[in-house]
């Protein structure tokens, strides 16, 4: 198992390298990185020349990429285009905030989706089942940003009408909160709800399908024939098996959730990776954008690895050679 993990880990290094080359090429060829800077009246010709030298913009793309890679690995992604601001401290800060949002949303989503999937599979074609399906389809059809806006409208109107502040509709924390944790929860609640809807929809569909496959299986019948109480049959025998593919799906879903976080954070002005990304894209500064994409790729690869490990842990039939 350990050997397998290490080998998978080593295997991701070339993948990551290739990824970085694609990201770099993609961002570089999609436009002159200096176009935005040149347009600014307060940036002199000399400054532009300095930038070209510092970022080796006069070289070919593979050479530029090699310099960038060196900068990324030895110097924590270096600085932004103008060279004023190191990228890593900003990225580190927003990563922590995004992780809070994403982990909370995913835990919530997984718990709710599991219950929904199990119940609707146990009562296939019941009112609850049709309700779950309809809810999921709503989840698939609803733009995250729109749902986030609607949440803001509702909560703000409640606040305006009753003067009761249940949840905040923007930012991550108040200036000087009395109770830090409560304040954080009040700030994160709406983004978490907005972000978790799509995941709930996705996972509950998978869980339902997976449970349906399992509830009619021979070993569940065996458990019943042994006289095992129905609740234990569901949890111990059926769910334990049905979970295997769903856990994998959830781990592989990280890229999608990160995409959702970009939109959610933008609407709720939450100082996370998503808002950072959108801002840097707005500035048309290629360097933070590339760093961001690299970090995201690393996360996705790590979660892929996690999916594999979880799969092997949950299913004893899988043996890693």
């Amino acid at each position: 198992m350990l050997v397998y993990v290490v080998r998978r880990f080593l295997y991701s290094i070339p993948v990551l390298l290739l990824c970085s080359f694609i990201i770099f090429t993609f961002v570089s060829v999609s436009g002159d990185p200096l176009s935005e800077v040149k347009r600014r009246p307060n940036v002199s010709q000399v400054t532009v020349q300095q930038i070209v030298e510092r970022k080796h913009l006069d070289e070919s793309i593979p050479v530029q990429w090699a310099y960038w890679l060196k900068d990324a690995t030895t110097n924590s992604f270096g600085t932004d285009l103008l060279g004023n601001r190191p990228i890593w401290p900003d990225l580190k800060r927003v990563m922590g905030n995004t992780l809070q949002l994403v982990v909370a949303a995913e835990l919530l989503a997984f718990t709710i989706a599991l219950a929904m999937g199990v119940i609707s599979a146990k009562r296939q074609y019941s009112l609850f089942d049709y309700g779950t399906t309809t809810f999921s389809f709503f989840g698939f059809s609803m733009p995250v940003f729109w749902f986030a806006l609607i949440l803001q409208v509702i909560v703000t109107n409640i606040y305006l009408a009753t003067d009761v502040r249940i949840f905040y509709t923007a930012n991550l924390s108040s200036p000087n909160p009395e109770n830090f944790l409560l304040d954080r929860i009040q700030h994160l609640a709406l983004p978490v709800i907005a972000l978790s809807v799509l995941s709930i929809a996705t996972y509950s569909r998978y869980m339902r399908a997976s449970m349906l496959e399992v509830v009619n299986s021979d070993y569940v019948r065996t458990a019943r024939a042994k006289g095992v109480p129905e609740r234990k049959v569901t949890v111990h025998h059926a769910m334990r098996n049905a979970l295997i593919p769903v856990v994998t799906v959830a781990a592989l879903n990280f890229g999608t959730v990160l995409g959702g976080a970009v939109v959610t954070e933008t609407v709720f002005a939450l100082d996370g990776m998503g808002l950072y990304f959108i801002r840097q894209l707005g500035e048309r500064d290629a360097y933070p954008v590339m760093a961001w994409l690299m970090v995201a790729a690393v996360f996705v690869i790590l979660f892929n690895l996690l999916a594999d490990i979880l799969y092997g842990y949950l299913d004893p039939r899988i043996r890693y050679e």
Binding site: V15, F254, T256, G259
Partner: peptide
Amino acid sequence: LTLPGLAVLIAAAALL
């Protein structure tokens, strides 16, 4: 598939 889909799309749309 490794690339975070929506983020790449946003970047592509923003840059291209």
